[in-house]
């Protein structure tokens, strides 16, 4: 089962609609995630990028079934996660690191209680001593001083709090961690420390990440493969170098041209592809391709049907009607 061919996480046609009431008796679906499929191999990091409100976070939370998916299947390690029992087991293998290190830690709990909470919930220890040792071990993993175990979260800095959050997500010995913008609330020097820690932990513990971020440089640094989302749909998925070197979808092209370059000469030579307009509301998504309202290459065909998410070269998926014409 756990051979290298079976992906660890296999998401098939995932849909997550939120129903927004538009009147006293009418509701309208907000398609936060609409028909998204991807796989993550064991030990790799899949980066997920896109602008605010495109559904990145919703994908992360729906993959962990924090929101009940409206449609689609979630396969983990060759088995579908479907029943409550599957889910209980899944919870000990897949965990999450949250974006905001301030609101993701309960202010009334000590650090050791926060870190050990998943252990408490699943009853994963026999004695108090065992629990304490595990907590201290985890604190060491993430570079926290073990003397701080009895302190409260508000006594720590943002970076330390994020480390506490990471220790919590590691406590059940997971294989897969969804990192929901884990560094975007931290300042740059701390970001580097935390990102490197993610790298080290991956090597040491053999973790698999779904790394959600909007900082393209951070994503490039940590990811093996990168997926680009736009308005609830996945528009491109490829190896990190491939997507940075040869983006095929017009949205990815524009996104990657916006990455700041440290060398001003190169930066001047690069052309930024500025998009016109704003991202449309997911409540009134355009017909056909969601990107057509801002796409410089849009034709009438784009308004009619949603382009298929297909593999154009090995491991490089794009959803665009005009891939061939644009990139020739």
């Amino acid at each position: 089962m756990a051979d290298n061919q079976t992906p660890l996480v296999d998401i098939r046609h995932l849909k997550e609609y939120f129903y927004i009431s538009t009147g006293p008796f009418t509701t309208k679906p907000l398609k936060a995630v609409d028909d998204v499929s991807f796989t993550i191999r064991r030990g790799e990091t899949l980066g997920l990028v896109g602008e605010s409100g495109c559904g990145k976070t919703t994908v992360g939370r729906t993959v962990l079934q924090l929101y009940k998916p409206t449609g689609g299947e979630i396969w983990y390690d060759g088995k579908q996660v479907k029943t409550a029992r599957d889910l209980k087991e899944f919870r000990t293998k897949a965990t999450m690191v949250f974006q905001d290190p301030y609101s993701s830690l309960n202010p009334r709990m000590t650090v050791s209680d926060i870190i050990a909470e998943p252990l408490d919930v699943h009853g994963l220890y026999k004695t108090k001593e065992e629990r304490r040792e595990r907590v201290l071990e985890l604190m060491q993993y993430v570079g926290l001083n073990s003397e701080h175990a009895s302190r409260y979260a508000h006594e720590f800095s943002g970076g330390q709090r994020q480390r506490i959050g990471i220790a919590r997500s590691l406590s059940v010995n997971p294989e897969f961690i969804v990192c929901d913008e884990p560094v975007s609330a931290l300042d740059v020097s701390i970001q580097a420390q935390v990102i490197n820690m993610f790298d080290e932990l991956q090597d040491k513990l053999g973790l698999t990440y779904l790394f959600i971020a909007h900082d393209l440089l951070v994503v490039r640094h940590i990811s093996d493969r990168i997926a680009v989302m736009y308005l609830g749909k996945m528009v491109e998925l490829a190896d990190a170098d491939e997507i940075y070197g040869h983006p095929l979808h017009p949205y990815s092209k524009s996104l990657i041209s916006a990455v700041p370059v440290p060398d001003p000469r190169t930066a001047r030579a690069n052309q930024r592809i500025a998009l016109k307009g704003d991202i449309p509301s997911p409540l009134n998504a355009p017909s056909g391709c969601p990107f057509r309202t801002r796409c410089p290459y849009a034709t009438d065909a784009c308004a009619e049907s949603m382009p298929e998410f297909k593999e154009v070269s090995s491991g490089h998926f794009v959803a665009c009607h005009r891939t061939a014409e644009i990139n020739s």
Binding site: R91, F98, L105, V121, R168
Partner: peptide, 10 residues
């Protein structure tokens, strides 16, 4: 978010 975190642990 800490409530969501608790839900994520099951």
């Amino acid at each position: 978010e800490y409530v969501l975190a608790a839900q994520a642990t099951g």
